[in-house]
Write a protein that binds this DNA or RNA. Structure first.
Lengths: 348, 348
DNA sequence: TAACATTGTAAACACGTGTTTACAGCCCGG
DNA sequence: CCGGGCTGTAAACACGTGTTTACAATGTTA
């Protein structure tokens, strides 16, 4: 076992003071004379002394580390959006001098996985945490919030009980949905369908309600059979579109997809059935996936600044760790519509 | 400050044994009677006791954490390949029960960034580390290897001095290059150019040498003006292609690009100049970027299994941490050619 | 049966830092 | 001139675990 070369005892000896004086210098306490402070700092710099983290933590200080927990059913490497979120958090936390401990959770009912997350908190590896991909009311998260840890979650409801340490980041899906419906309405579409996302995710429910509201606002009728259940990935989009084609004789002229991956899958199903996008079917996605601009047809989508969202969330979590007491925060970022090739006006 | 609810003293009291017996049970030592062991385990399970990590580290045990350091000049979020590598390491380490501490380094000559990395090791946050994107002979890495830490690096030379704790992962770029040149040769191409990557990266040098060797093997002459300097990103590909078009009257019929991003940039430059790919110019990339299959034209590329590479590298680093002494390791993964649309036979 | 090896446990120490307590030296006002 | 507040330092303690040492109880051999 490698021993740390130098400790505060050595520094104190070399500077000719006591160890507690060294501690006070490092932690910027008041009652230490300028001349003494200067001398101690000199020795610290000369020997590249860094306080031992484990000892600091043991003595009651924080770790300056936040945990990033990615809950993924499938392989995380495949999901480019997850990677982007992950990188955004790491980048922003690094800039604020925080480390990020990343952990992948395959299954929130798997004992080992749950244990791994809890250990991160109870062994005092992390001061706070951010969860990506968690369902609403996930017991693990509720427990950690109950324990008082600073927890940031993406895409969840903000419950009535407003604990000060629950930080929620969402997008304004309702507004995005009204942009999408409004645009299709402008193009003359009246028969509009939707493939929903997971209904145990906040954004799934929010987009669904937003769709109903937006249709009402624009005076359009919702045709139940065109509202299809789904999930936030490509294969779900493919299957939902196929079932729609099988079951329904009359089709909508436009469909809004839970996100761009779903749109890719649905478009594939449409094309296999001999339908052209956008000539026979207009399609709008969500999220502005990295592939969307280069897709054929280039996908019209409701864009969202994920980087900004994760930066803000990271900021709030770190802020809470550093003592900013407060009420629960719900961060919302504004969506905007990116017009590309996948939508056509009705009647050419 | 939240106090840990329960410690080994409590466990010992509840089990009616001494604290050292608890320690021996946890660490699976021999000299503890089965009945005592059972009773202690029962209490540990009943109270969900987890040893405090900081105390363990302070007492000389490891952290079961590896550091992942990503050296990036630009924004890391934009680089999908980096995200994939990062996710692969996290995923594989998690599976082995290790945590991953991720840190972004913008600039290896920036004092704060260097300090951040050193702190991770000297403060005993991590047991070992993996570096992505580091140049050859990076002093920071050489220092850490000199200190005896288990260090994995991607895309670097394996120097003559074979420290046991230096673990290097590379791809067989020379073989990949011979696949690319061989394929173009089969298609009838004799005038083949290349846009190189960074020459301070192992893969840059290796691809360049591999190209020269492969051309010689296939009896093809290297035309110096068609060997262009470059770097591993899209903009460099665009600029290199533009300069080639400006400076050279006679053009090659096919070009090999340092990677797929470079290829995207170069193809854009060719198309802007009125050249069609592949009709006027065949192009081969490297890495099978996520976009390559959907690009127009779909890009022919030398594929590489990055996930497998990072898994192996992570394995070796963890193995070394857990005591597997040994010589330096150089891991090599086999490349394979993926034929798509961006290459055409000569004379139709 | 006595000397000795073996086994299992308890107590003490080490790890390095932050904080609390005790105390010495100083200045100032009564 | 003396007592009390103030300032700065030293020593002791707490944090929780792993390891070492000392020792008691038990089993074994001459």
């Amino acid at each position: 076992m490698k021993k740390t070369e130098i400790n505060s005892v050595e520094i104190a000896r070399l500077a000719g003071v006591s160890r507690s004086t060294v501690s006070r210098v490092i932690n910027n306490y008041a009652n230490v004379p300028p001349e003494t402070r200067r001398k101690v700092m000199e020795v610290i710099d000369a020997y590249n002394y860094v306080p031992n983290l484990s000892a600091q933590v043991l003595a009651g200080k924080g770790t300056r580390t936040i945990g990033l927990f990615v809950i993924e059913a499938g392989r995380v490497s495949g999901d480019m959006l997850t990677n982007l979120l992950l990188a955004s958090v790491v980048e922003h936390a690094s800039a604020r001098g925080y480390y990020v401990l990343t952990y992948i959770i395959r299954n929130t009912s798997d004992a080992d996985n749950v244990r791994g997350v809890k250990d991160a908190f109870y062994q005092r590896r992390v001061d706070g945490g951010i969860f990506i991909g968690a369902a609403n009311e996930e017991p693990l998260i509720e427990e950690l919030i109950g324990e008082g840890f600073a927890i940031g979650v993406v895409d969840q409801h903000l419950p009535d009980r407003n604990e000060g340490n629950r930080i929620v980041a969402n997008f304004d899906n309702a507004y995005g949905m009204s942009l999408a419906v409004g645009y299709l309405s402008e193009l003359g579409h009246r028969d509009i369908g939707i493939v929903n996302g997971d209904m145990n995710r906040y954004s799934g429910v929010d987009k669904y309600n937003g769709f109903l509201d937006a249709m009402r606002e624009h005076g359009l009728a919702v045709h139940e059979p065109w509202v299809r259940p789904g999930s936030f990935h490509e294969e779900a989009g493919y299957q939902s579109a196929r079932k729609l084609l099988e079951e329904e004789k009359r089709l909508p002229t436009a469909m809004i997809m839970a996100n761009d991956s779903v749109a890719f899958g649905a478009i594939r199903a449409f094309q296999e059935a001999g339908l052209s996008v956008p000539a026979d079917m207009s399609v709008i996605g969500f999220d502005d996936h990295a592939l969307s601009a280069r897709y054929k047809p280039a996908l019209t989508t409701v864009a969202i600044d994920f980087g900004e969202m994760m930066s803000s969330l990271t900021d709030y979590v770190i802020g809470h760790i550093e003592g900013a007491e407060g009420t629960a925060i719900r961060y919302m970022s504004r969506s905007k519509l990116i017009r590309r090739e996948s939508c056509r006006p009705i009647g050419q």
